[in-house]
Computed example of a mutant assay.
Amino acid sequence: MESVRSVVRRHPWGADAGLALLLALMGAPATAARDPGVAGWPIFVLIFLPLVWRRRAPLVVYWTVFLTWVAANATVDLPGSVLALPAVLYAVARYRPRHALWPVLAAVEIDLAVTWLLGHQSGATVIQANAVAATAVLLGMNLRTHRAYLAALEERARRLERERDQQARLAAAAERTRIAREMHDIVAHNLAVIVALADAAALTTMTAPRGAADKMEKVAATGREALGEMRHLLGLMREGREAAPSVPVPEPSGPALVPQPGFDDIDQLLDQVRAAGLPVVLTREGEPGRWGPGAGLAVYRIVQEALTNTIKHGGPGAGAHVRLRYTSAGVDLEVTDDGPHRPGRARPPADGHGLAGMAERAASYGGNVEAGPLPDAGWRVRTSLRFGDAA
């Protein structure tokens, strides 16, 4: 049936022509039994021919068919031509507003009443004709209402999809701004260190050249680290070409910057989570490389967000397990819990931004976040971050 509907939608003229031909062939035997003569058959064809345009001009087609049928049956007996009337009644009900039906139905009822009063039709025949007309009209109205309902649902789905995409873009933009601010603190701190080391090296070049060389090596290392962090910042902000809000960089002599959390702060984070009532087990493999504070911040924030979701949605008695596997190029991170989550049932997000934030952080280091229910119960967040180019 779906393939038939598809063909009809692609070729409406052909479908209407086929319907007209089918109804004419069905009515031809009854008409031939009454022997309409040579003049009757052209009129018979003329009654069915306008059905080809029933979708494009249903009212014009109806009045053409109805008036031709009334005039023809006043002089020629064409019983089979009555099959055209339900088709045009259906077309008016299907493709025109409801108020357009009233004159159409009035014309049908007047014709039936006149033929009954003149004795041309029996009462049973009139009742049958009314039943057929009512069926055609109700079928057309029902299908019109159904199609309008489906069109409204499709429009609503498109509107919700646009709103969802807009919300996702807004969430991603807000998260990129937040990450950019954090990166700004790191880069500003590195620049302040570079300035201080360069000043010290300049002062000791003549008196302690070896110490000055050591300081310049630290300047180079710190500069490479800052360059890597800036590269990731630009990668985050490239989409949309929108710059983060401008924040003035403090002078080296100004107040000290608050350090961002990193690898060394994960234990303290887990202690805070345990104090909140969530038992957490930490498994480490290997040691973190010298990837810079941005790498540690990304891992710290992903673990933090995953455990925050467990606290909110894991339910009473849930426990969590954090696995960190350090490799030469990066970190494989997995956070699981054993809360009462069933497979196939999505955990409701707290604010819609948590997963977006984790995904943005992972994407900045060439990874992606996989979050979903475990086969039996519980929830898992897993990602792999690569820091080889950040050092």
Rank of each mutant, 00 (worst) to 15 (best):
N190E: 09
L191M: 07
V193M: 12
I194D: 01
A196P: 00
A196F: 00
L197K: 12
A198L: 14
A198I: 02
A200T: 09
A201D: 03
L203C: 05
L203Y: 02
T204H: 03
T204M: 03
T205G: 05
T205N: 02
T205A: 15
T207E: 01
T207L: 05
T207D: 00
T207N: 04
P209N: 08
R210D: 15
R210F: 03
R210T: 07
G211W: 09
G211C: 01
A212I: 06
A213F: 05
D214N: 06
D214C: 02
K215I: 01
K215T: 02
M216D: 05
M216H: 04
E217P: 02
E217H: 07
V219K: 07
V219A: 14
A220L: 14
T222K: 13
G223D: 01
G223Q: 09
R224Q: 15
R224E: 13
E225L: 15
L227D: 15
L227C: 09
E229F: 03
M230C: 00
R231H: 09
L233K: 06
G235F: 10
L236Y: 09
M237H: 01
E239Y: 05
E239D: 14
G240D: 08
R241K: 06
A244P: 14
P245T: 14
S246W: 13
V247W: 13
V247Y: 10
V249E: 14
V249H: 10
P252V: 10
P255V: 05
P255D: 10
P255L: 11
A256F: 02
A256T: 13
A256I: 10
L257H: 11
L257F: 11
V258N: 10
P259R: 14
Q260L: 15
Q260N: 14
Q260V: 14
P261D: 11
G262D: 06
G262E: 08
F263E: 07
F263M: 08
D264F: 06
D264A: 15
D264I: 00
D265Y: 06
I266F: 03
I266A: 02
D267V: 15
Q268S: 13
L269G: 10
L270S: 09
L270P: 02
D271A: 12
Q272F: 03
V273W: 09
A275M: 06
A276P: 02
G277D: 07
L278W: 13
L278Y: 13
P279Q: 12
V280D: 05
V281A: 12
V281F: 04
V281E: 14
V281S: 04
L282W: 02
R284H: 01
R284L: 05
E285T: 13
E285N: 08
P288T: 11
P288A: 07
G289L: 06
R290H: 12
R290I: 00
R290V: 09
R290E: 12
P293I: 02
G294L: 09
G294D: 07
G294M: 08
A295K: 08
A298Q: 05
V299D: 03
Y300R: 02
R301D: 05
I302F: 11
I302Y: 12
V303W: 02
V303K: 00
E305D: 08
E305S: 10
A306I: 06
A306R: 04
L307Q: 06
L307K: 11
L307C: 06
N309I: 05
N309G: 13
N309V: 07
T310I: 09
T310A: 12
T310M: 01
I311P: 04
K312T: 08
P316L: 13
P316W: 11
